[in-house]
C-alpha cells in the first residue's frame, strides 16, 4: 500500500500552490501557539500569521514583513479522535468512502502538527472497543496512526458509537490537549451534549463533520440513474425510487435541516468550532476555513 502520508502531503502541496506556500502552517501556528517569551529568530511572514507577531522594526529594515519566532517551551499534544466503526465504511455526499476523507483530514491536521513540532496521538474505535495510541512525534508515527484508521474502518466491523471514544478521552486523558474530532452527521442528544461540555472544559476541540450520503436527492445524479442504498448499521435495503416521491424528499430535506441545526447548536453551545466537508477534494479548504474560524473565535 502506498504511503497514506504521501497522499496527504501531495494533497497539501496542490493546495499550497493554489493559495500560498505555508499558509496552513501559519494558520496552525496561530491557532495552537505554544509561545514563550524567549525570542528565537525571525522568519518571513506568510499569510495567516498573527499580525501581532510581526517584528515591525525588523520588517522596516528588511523591506518585507518578518515574524518573530519564539522558542517553544511547551510541546503541544494533538489528539486525533475519529470513529472507525461501520458508519465510516459508508459513502459520503460525493460518493467516496467516508473513511478516506477521514484519513485525509486526520493526515493533514497531523502533518501540520508534526511540522509545528507537536506530538500526535490517536483515539479511534467502534461500539465494541476503543483504541488509544499515545502521542509521539515523527512521520513514521503519523503514518502508523493513519494506517490504523484506514485498516480498522470497514463494512465488517462493529457499529459506530462515537460517545465511547469521547468518553474514553474524558476518562483517561490527562492535561490540556488539542482535540481534533472527525465524525459524521451524528444526531444531537443530551448525553452527547453533556459529554462535549465536559471535554471542552479540559481540551481545545476542533470538530470536522464528514457529510453523509444524500439518501433522498431532490434531483437524480449524473446519468439520471439513482443508486439504491443499504444501511450499514442493519443491512436494510433502501430502494432509491421510494425516496424519490416529492413528499418523501420534502420531509427528508426538512428532517436533515433540523438535524444539522441541532448538531451545530449542540457544538456551538459546547464551545466547539465545527466545519464540514463533503469529499476528499475539499478537505484542505475545509480545514483552512475551520482553523481560520477557530482563530477568530478563540
Amino acid at each position: 500500500m502506498a504511503s497514506l502520508l504521501l497522499r496527504v502531503k501531495s494533497k497539501m502541496a496542490i493546495f499550497a500552490h493554489r493559495k500560498a506556500r505555508g499558509l496552513l502552517d501559519g494558520e496552525y501556528g496561530s491557532v495552537f501557539r505554544g509561545r514563550s517569551l524567549d525570542f528565537d529568530d525571525l522568519r518571513a511572514y506568510v499569510p495567516g500569521d498573527e499580525v501581532r507577531d510581526i517584528d515591525w522594526k525588523a520588517s522596516a529594515r528588511h523591506g518585507s514583513p518578518l515574524i518573530k519566532r519564539y522558542v517553544a517551551v511547551r510541546r503541544q499534544t494533538l489528539l486525533l479522535l475519529t470513529d472507525t466503526g461501520r458508519n465510516m465504511a459508508a459513502i459520503s455526499r460525493t460518493g467516496e468512502p467516508k473513511k478516506d476523507i477521514a484519513v485525509m483530514a486526520l493526515g493533514v491536521m497531523g502533518y501540520l502538527a508534526h511540522r509545528h513540532g507537536d506530538v500526535v496521538g490517536l483515539v479511534s474505535g467502534d461500539s465494541v472497543r476503543t483504541r488509544f495510541i499515545p502521542a509521539k512525534g515523527g512521520e513514521a508515527h503519523l503514518e502508523r496512526l493513519l494506517r490504523q484508521v484506514h485498516g480498522d474502518a470497514g463494512a465488517g466491523v462493529a457499529p459506530s458509537r462515537l460517545e465511547d471514544q469521547l468518553d474514553h478521552v474524558a476518562r483517561t486523558v490527562k492535561g490540556r490537549n488539542l482535540l481534533f474530532v472527525v465524525a459524521d452527521e451524528i444526531a444531537a442528544t443530551p448525553a452527547m451534549a453533556g459529554l462535549l461540555r465536559r471535554l471542552r472544559a479540559q481540551h481545545e476541540i476542533l470538530w470536522l463533520t464528514v457529510r453523509d450520503a444524500d439518501l433522498a436527492p431532490s434531483q437524480p445524479g449524473p446519468g439520471g440513474a439513482v443508486a439504491d442504498f443499504y444501511s450499514v448499521a442493519d443491512y436494510v435495503f433502501l430502494p432509491a425510487h421510494l425516496a424519490q416521491s416529492d413528499t418523501v424528499v420534502a420531509a427528508y430535506t426538512k428532517g436533515i435541516a433540523e438535524r444539522d441545526a441541532a448538531r451545530k447548536a449542540m457544538l456551538r453551545q459546547a464551545g466547539i468550532t465545527e466545519g464540514d466537508v463533503a469529499g476528499s477534494q475539499g478537505v484542505v479548504t475545509a480545514l483552512f476555513a475551520l482553523l481560520e474560524r477557530h482563530r477568530r473565535a478563540g
Binding site: 443508486a227 443499504y230 450499514v232 448499521a233 436494510v236 425516496a243 436533515i256
Partner: peptide, 21 residues
C-alpha cells in the same frame, strides 16, 4: 451494486418514507 449509507434513520424514521415502504 447497492451503496452503503450510514445514519439510514435519517430516512427510515420519516413517516412519509415508512408509508411508501
Amino acid at each position: 451494486r447497492r451503496r452503503p449509507a450510514a445514519h439510514a434513520d435519517r430516512l427510515t424514521l420519516l413517516p412519509e418514507y415508512q408509508a411508501a415502504v
